[in-house]
Structures are given as C-alpha cells and as structure tokens.
Design a protein around this nucleic acid. Structure first.
Lengths: 238, 238
DNA sequence: ACCTGAACACCGTTCAAGT
DNA sequence: ACCTGAACACCGTTCAAGT
C-alpha cells in the first residue's frame, strides 16, 4: 500500500492519472471526501500541482464522469433496437454500480461533457436505425431521462447511504419501526409486498435490479407501442 | 427592503421562520449561496443562533424540503386513480417549479423526512383505492421514482443553469455550434425535431412541460395496462 | 519558466467565556 | 441558564515569492 503510493509518487502526474486517482478516491472514501487537498495527498503531490492538469474542481468532476461513461459497452449492432437499447442501458447500470457517487455527480453537473454526449448520440443512433422518426426519438430520449445512463433516483434509497462511507457490508435496512406503520400505513403495506430476496425475514430490502428492469421494460414497451403506431407530437403554432 | 429586514429582526426567531428564510434565500440566490452564515445574516442574527432551531445544516435542508412538499395539493377524491395521480404529480411539479434547487436537494438527502413520507403514503393510498394490489403498487412506486414528486432528471438541462444564479431572464440556449453537429450528428438531428414554442427561430429550447407530461402519460398508460391484466411479480424462492 | 508555500475568503460546528 | 465571539478544522483558489 505504502509501497504502491511510493511508486505512484515517482510516476509523473498527468490528467489521466489525476482523474483515475479522483475516481478511486471517490469510490473508496465517498464523494464527500473528494477534495483537491485529499486528492493531492493521495497522489503524493502538493495541492496546487493538480491545477496544471485540471482547471478547477468542476472540471475535475466532469473528467471523472467522462472516465466512467467511457467504460459503458459499445452498442451492439444487428439486433432489434429494443434489445440493443436494453443491453446498453443495463451495461451502463453495471458500470455505475461500481461508482455509487456517480449518479448524483452527473445530476449536479450542468451536463455537456464529451463522453456523455457521445454516449447519448450513439443511443439516438440506435433508435434511428430502428426506424424512429427524429421527432419520436427526441421525446423518447427525454422520457428515458437518466435511466438511459443506468440509474434512476429512488425515493427511498437505502443503498445510497451505504455507498457514501466505506460501504463494507450492504446491511439490509432495519425493520420498520412500529410508529412508522402507524403513521404511514399504505407505505408499510407495500414495503414487503414485492419480489425480493427473502434472506431476511422481516425488514427485507428491495431488489434494485428487478425494480430497474421493471421500469425499463415498462418504458420500452410503451415506446415500442408508440413507434408501431407512427406517433408524432403535435407541432405548436404550425 | 431594509425596513422589512428591520421588522424581521425584531420578530423572535423560530424554526419556521428559519426554514422559510432558508427557502427564500435558496430561491433568490441559489442553493450554493445557502450557508448558515448567509442565512443568519438574512435573519439579522448571529450564525450560532440558528443552532437552537435546527441541529445542523442537514436538518435545515430536511426542513426546507418538508416546507416545500407540504405545499403540494391534497389528493382529489372520487375520481379515477389515473386522473388523481396525474393531477397530484402535476401539482407537485408546479410547486417544484418555484424552487429550482429542490430536486437536487431532495435527491442528495437520504430521504426520510415526514412530509415526503406522508406524501408518498397518500399516493400509495390512491393506487390502492383504485384497486391495485400491494405488490403492483410497490413496483409502480419504484417505477415512478422522483417523477411522483414532479421532477425527473433531464440529461441536457439548460434550465438548471438558469435556476442557479439569480435567474432573471431564462434565456434560450444558444444555437448549436457547428462543431457540435459534426461530432454528434444524431443529437443534432433530434435537437429541433420536437413540439416546442417556436418563438426563437434557431436554437429553440425544449418544452419541459410537454416532455414531462409525455413521459408521465407513457408511464400511466403502461401501469394501467398492467393493472387491467392483474399483473403480479414472480415471488423469488417461494 | 516552472513550482509551491503562504495567504485569502470562505465553510460548518465546537467550545468556552461572557452575561 | 442562555447567548455569542472566538477558534478549530476544514474548503477551493489566488498570488507572489522562490528556484
């Protein structure tokens, strides 16, 4: 560990090394631990040295996102658009699962990094190759939203808290306290009424992957129906 | 203005005044300007005085979210579940539109504030009243995700940038630079191919409201179809 | 010309001293 | 007992002094 750090210290700094070290730091210690100062220390370098490879912290975050989005599988060709999109999105999801801080980082950026644009462009290309009009493809991209990048913001997300700190054992959420059931009876009722691993008996967590695919397929089915119907949005004001 | 500040200074501090002042500060100056120190100054109070009404900044943010979610219309009764959900979500969207910082704040919290839970509980109640099984209601709530609160993370969101700073004129995004069209031809193609206000001739923005309702209706239609079909998720391991 | 220590202008929060 | 100024441990980034 210290030896590795020593080796790294001798390697000359580069934008790529800075970005990869930043991703590693965020993965291991959580995004809230990613400061220019901490990152510099990890690299065995004085904080100001980073500013030669990265204009400021915002650009650092953009670069980190590009590193991650670049890991998503390239599009499969010669298969039906629906399956191609599905695989691509699930590949993106796998990548993002290794970087739990990424969704929030992506959402907080104003979005324009080249790697993200290239990815989105290729997704649009898949729709177009499947015979979609530009108009429908436009609305469909909006509809997919962040789901096209393999994540969606869950409202009751226990995993995010785990992903923040070291994230050793993804311990199942504690059983619902009785006061919860009293105040929010409908939430309590549906809490356990789902497909899930039944390893834990009482406070079972949700199967995130199942929920994601459920929603993804619901969207893709709806999109397919509109496509077959030749749907087009009304043009406003001519 | 200074007079109003003077009046406020005499009013004794309360948790409610702190929260409302925080929301106002975030609305006017952007969430990045919301610091305990700035908030205290707005209230004509020493920073440490806030800590009697709010344990720390995280609790302040939770409280701000509760203030906002509390403004969403109560559920309509005696109408079809689909219309009831639709109206509720669009009401939430209207509320959030007045507080552009809220979506990101909501997503960054670990989520458990009472007002949000109460809202979600009442949404579930609407589904149940419409005849949904607990199982389907569970998956449907996951599928709606943050959209149930009236927002969804757009990947190419020009409005967020405007909402950050003072947000005077929501100026339309600049026309696509020619290099953009060359590098991302498919994105360029769909950029203008949508329903939108055609006030601007070249760089037209998207109609956020249309895109939101498009996606919402796509989801609700899919959900209705599953409901009518009596769909239930397979139970794993019995 | 390059590198970097010190400094600046901020944070959230603790703590002890003042009333 | 309450209130609050000063202080602590951080930030990102500027800038000027050192090589």
């Amino acid at each position: 560990m210290a030896e590795q750090a020593e080796t790294l210290r001798r390697t000359p700094l580069s934008r790529d090394r800075v970005l990869r070290a930043a991703v590693a730091l965020a993965d291991e210690a959580g995004i809230e631990s990613l400061s220019m100062r901490n990152l510099a220390q990890d690299l065995g370098v004085v904080p100001m040295a980073l500013y030669k490879h990265v204009a400021n912290k915002d650009e650092l975050l953009d670069g980190m996102i590009d590193v991650i989005v670049g890991q998503i599988d390239p599009p499969a060709s010669d298969i039906h658009w629906k399956d191609a999109i599905r695989r691509r999105v699930l590949s993106a999801r796998e990548v993002l699962r290794r970087h739990p801080w990424a969704p929030l980082a992506i959402e907080s950026r104003t979005m324009a990094t080249p790697a993200v644009l290239a990815y989105l462009d290729s997704v649009v290309a898949t729709f177009k190759a499947g015979g979609f009009s530009a108009n429908l493809a436009h609305h469909v991209m909006h509809t997919m939203g962040s789901r096209v990048l393999g994540f969606s913001q869950e409202l009751f997300d226990a995993s995010r808290q785990a992903g923040r700190s070291g994230a050793t054992t993804p311990e199942p959420p504690a059983a619902l306290p009785p006061e919860f059931a009293a105040r929010f009876p409908h939430l309590a009722e549906i809490a356990g009424a789902a497909s899930h691993d039944d390893q834990s008996i009482v406070g079972e967590g949700c199967d995130d992957q199942f929920e994601f695919e459920f929603a993804l397929d619901l969207l893709l089915d709806g999109i397919e129906r509109l496509h077959q119907r030749g749907w087009t949005s009304p043009r406003r004001n001519g």
